[in-house]
Design a protein around this nucleic acid. Structure first.
Lengths: 214, 214
DNA sequence: TTGCCTATCCCCCGAAAGGGTAAGTCCCCG
DNA sequence: CGGGGACTTACCCTTTCGGGGGATAGGCAA
């Protein structure tokens, strides 16, 4: 079974290097290699590959945006993000856009090839560090990729956490064995810090969804 | 650096086999090997290992429950679930309980050893199939296992959508050019359908986060 | 010591939200 | 044609929120 691969990467050197690695692998062929997201989008419509290696940092449209569009146009195409970045936010955004793998550029060629094969078999190749972050994010969705650096006190976080599970102030107060007034007080401070004026907006901000698309 | 490992596995054969594999690896030592969750919990307090290999299916307390308790008592201990099951629910429950890796029992010894090392380095070893499921779960939490089949009318969805972006009833009303009373009315129906009693809870349900872990 | 932060609790007020009920329009389907 | 569902508006009442004060107390650092 021949796996058709495409590469999206702005650096010509890396792009051609990836193409050589792919074409040099038996059972694998590089269909095309684009230098920009825009170019890639037209190529995808012309010839949809099985797997795409996508640089996350592209001039113009980002690789994340490009991934989202490709998955919309051709959901069967599997996308592996290839990047130098290791920060959580980019990882999550890429996965949500539809990427199924996330590798660092320093990944060795043989691992890259293995990753492409993995993807075809329904796997989700990623370094174990990245897998760990995914696991962490899965375990504590709020604390990690939301609030982040916003200086919330322990108590405020705690209350926000209960708030984000749909409890009323009174229920939170009972849960924490304090007066509802105290809960309200902490929430006021949270609203200030988040620059919001409603519990709903605060929760959304806390969960990192304030900018969700419709 | 010596990595101390512990094994929790009810089958004596597999337990001893795991112990041999670990003790046969330079730089690794099997501290203890328990046959039940209860036994393991007391052992953990006595001697906390760096990494635990935990069978998910144990007589009495399950491996998932046991993982949760261990992580509570000794958060630094890393737990790798070892199992024959491959179903999503168990995977997620285990990860939420605090496991950081999830391997199938048919994993070869050398991979197991590598996984233990991975964990010590902050990785999250898992087969790529399992990683894929995690990614899937991460990508569509809302659409899939939430809202899904709940029969919401067009209008109700529309309002819920605006609601889930933090708008007040009045703002939604302006947006849709209807009266706030109308918005309130639709929301009431939504609350009924969702069996919730607050906008926050409704939004969470809508976004598919109603069962989030703490 | 004097602040400053966090946490706790209290007051007030007006606005918003939740619950119930009623009634009007529209359009589709039998 | 009639009935039903979706959508609309309106009224009632009660509870909760959001925003504004202020008071007390412990901890921690300048």
């Amino acid at each position: 079974m021949l796996i058709s691969v495409a590469v999206i990467e702005d650096s010509r050197t890396i792009r051609e290097s990836l193409r050589r690695i792919i074409d040099g692998t038996p059972g694998m062929r590089c269909l095309w290699a684009a230098g920009s997201a825009e170019e890639a989008l037209t190529e995808v419509l012309r010839q949809a590959p099985d797997v795409i290696l996508m640089d996350i940092h592209l001039p113009g449209m980002s690789g994340i945006e490009c991934t989202a569009r490709i998955k919309q146009a051709a959901p069967a195409v599997e996308v592996i993000m290839l990047t130098v970045y290791e920060d959580n936010e980019k990882i999550f955004r890429a996965l949500q856009a539809g990427a199924c793998g996330y590798l660092l550029k320093r990944t060795r060629p043989e691992e890259l090839i293995q990753a492409i094969k993995d993807v075809k078999q329904g796997g989700a190749p990623m370094t174990s560090e990245i897998a760990r972050r995914l696991v962490e994010a899965f375990r504590h969705p709020p604390a990690e990729h939301a609030g982040g650096d916003t200086a919330l006190s322990r108590r405020e976080k705690q209350i926000l956490d209960l708030l984000s599970r749909g409890f009323t102030n009174k229920e939170i107060a009972n849960d924490l064995s304090v007066s509802p007034e105290t809960v309200r007080h902490h929430l006021k401070r949270v609203y200030d810090k988040f620059h919001v004026h409603s519990r709903t907006a605060a929760v959304l901000k806390y969960l990192g969804m304030e900018g969700r698309p419709s």
